[in-house]
Design a protein around this nucleic acid. Structure first.
Lengths: 207, 207
DNA sequence: CGGAAAATTGACGGACCTCAAAATCTGTGG
DNA sequence: CCACAGATTTTGAGGTCCGTCAATTTTCCG
């Protein structure tokens, strides 16, 4: 029942069938839980979310990754989660050669270690942090991802997606955005625009 | 103010200074968050928990690992979490040679991939599962860890530790043990003794 | 400008937490 | 073997943070 844009078979994804480059439009599926896994993807442009689906329409967004990041890591026979493009995205394929010891193998290894670190952060937030602490942690992670200190940024995802990343209801996310704004820690602009007014206060709240 | 048994410097841990084997008593610290990380440990006997500490005495137990498992994976300059022995435990040290392509490197790689898979399971449980679903998921993981299908098992951890693993209060854990018992899914014996009466029902609840 | 989508805000309820007491288990000594 | 004390687990009562449902406001975009 879904329109073709969410289907890998007939979208931009295979525009370069003989190349190791692939392009996706917003909401395009990159890979699906249970699918045979062969490759690792490097994000050249755009953004991707990695998620698990549960019964009852529930979902957990495990990662929100931008340019420079790898996805599809650590799959053995099949993927244990799905990946969806958040906007126009181009990926480079890397055959998952675990025995590659050269510079490419080293950067994959580093990416795998970062993945574990991020998942530990996420599990700690989901298990033992309050809603406000989770939101602050999320914003700090975005801040750190973006290299230097871009006090002003564009949120890569909307409220429902932040909620499914932080294990909250979207209304709770909205309420805590407001709470942080009232404390003058952030400033909320039009649409996805957001300014971190007080990064150190944000980090302190994030704990 | 703590007795020496919780201190790495003066416990059994360095009984074999020139060997790659180390022994720990229950509650001994194996490594601590922030500590320089050099090696990976293979659990030969015993059990270990890996955890993060937060402000306010909160903690998140990220992993509960038994014999055959590796811990200390994915540390770069320093460990990003701590590890504590749950009982008498012996570990073998592996220098973390990421460029090892041989059989040892392959088994480390497999362990790293398993680690990521487990962390994704945990994050999904903590973010989007109910208390009963989390407890069922925990018991299913123990069941699968233990190889075949040992319908009868010994819980490696007590109620407070299960609570800090599942992001719940210990009373909530206890109440949900009772709930599963009332549904005839499990049977609770003396001490840490526990019997899985209906594994498939347990898996269904775990979702 | 105008309709639809997204975000915010409000009221209320529920799942889980906190505090507290009772029950059970463990280990020690008589 | 039993008694007793401490620790662990279970059970109970009440409170709170967050979820659900719903209305309003703001933003998006043709």
């Amino acid at each position: 029942m879904n329109e073709s844009s969410t289907n890998r078979q007939d979208c931009d994804a295979i525009r370069f069938p003989t190349s190791d480059l692939r392009r996706y439009a917003a909401r395009d599926s990159i890979f699906v839980e249970g699918e045979a896994s062969t490759d690792v993807f490097e994000i050249l442009q755009g953004a991707v979310m990695v998620l698990r689906n549960l019964s009852g329409g529930r979902r957990q967004i495990l990662d929100i990754a931008g340019a420079g990041r790898f996805i599809g890591l650590a799959a053995r026979a099949t993927h244990d989660c799905s990946a969806v493009a958040l906007k126009e995205t181009s990926l480079r394929l890397h055959s998952d050669n675990r025995n590659d010891v050269g510079p490419r193998g080293a950067s994959l290894m580093r990416a795998i270690y970062d993945e574990i670190h991020r998942l530990r952060d996420l599990a700690t937030a989901l298990g033992r942090k309050t809603a406000e602490e989770r939101l602050a942690s999320f914003l700090v992670a975005l801040l750190d991802d973006s290299g230097a200190s871009p006090v002003e940024m564009n949120l890569p995802v909307s409220r429902p997606e932040i909620a499914d990343h932080l294990g909250l209801a979207l209304e709770t996310v909205s309420r805590n955005f407001t709470a942080l704004r009232c404390k003058n820690v952030i400033s909320i602009g039009r649409g996805a625009r957001l300014t971190i007014l007080d990064p150190s206060a944000l980090r302190q709240i994030a704990d």
